[in-house]
């Protein structure tokens, strides 16, 4: 039945080459943990992506209940976590995933560093990787404010204070991020917009670039 549908579409649109190009390629022996167990370090990039997908999915579902408003934000998070079925699980995925994605990204970066894979011709992918790193940090910092509890509020005060300490532009940057003179209603809506729309959009573009470059250049050779 599925084969029938697939063939029907394939006859008309010739989709086989598209997925072949994405998925059908050899995994070299030196990156295959089935050959050398130590090759598991090559999985960290894929694991980072896996958790990123979890973050995006769980985040999309969280926005079904979450409201970015200083009166109601905390209540909405409390409600979705305690009253909604599986709320604890979905929020838990997003909450713990946010830390795990940083850990995985860090391990992936270490692998790339110690295998020397950042060297020519892959320098540009190292740079894109660093940009992904900053976007991830941004997602973590903006997401952290959203529950609007004491920890969120004071952590954001400190984050903005760090931005404020940058010479010359610091105070303007802080006020721009804060959306005004204090951490308040306009900060929360701003952080929400950046967390949920702006940074994920940038992240997806960067990931596309990262993956296209990997396909073009292949995985780096054995040590």
């Amino acid at each position: 039945m599925f084969k029938g549908i697939y063939n029907w579409v394939d006859e008309r649109l010739d989709i086989t080459p598209i997925w072949r190009d994405v998925a059908d390629h050899e995994v070299p022996e030196h990156v295959n943990p089935a050959h050398h167990f130590s090759a598991f370090v090559y999985c960290f990039g894929g694991l980072t992506f896996f958790i990123t997908v979890i973050q995006i999915l769980s985040g999309m579902f969280l926005t079904m209940y979450y409201v970015p408003d200083i009166i109601n934000a905390y209540g909405s998070v409390e409600y979705l976590q305690t009253k909604v079925a599986f709320g604890q699980i979905v929020r838990g995925m997003h909450h713990w995933g946010a830390s795990l994605v940083i850990v995985m990204m860090f391990l992936h970066t270490l692998r790339v560093f110690f295998t020397g894979s950042y060297k020519a011709p892959r320098e540009m992918n190292w740079v894109v990787g660093m940009l992904i790193f900053f976007v991830m940090i941004g997602l973590g910092l903006t997401g952290y404010l959203l529950p609007w509890d004491n920890k969120a509020y004071f952590a954001t005060r400190v984050t903005l204070q760090i931005a404020d300490s940058i010479p010359v532009v610091g105070p303007y940057l802080k006020e721009l991020m804060q959306g005004g003179q204090i951490v308040g209603a306009e900060t929360l809506t701003r952080f929400f917009a950046v967390h949920v729309f702006f940074l994920p959009a940038v992240l997806l573009l960067l990931l596309v670039g990262h993956f296209i470059m990997i396909r073009r250049q292949g995985i780096s050779g054995p040590l």
Partner: peptide, 11 residues
């Protein structure tokens, strides 16, 4: 008395 966007509150 402070004005924070559309909220006024006492800090």
């Amino acid at each position: 008395q402070q004005q924070d966007g559309w909220y006024s509150s006492t800090a």
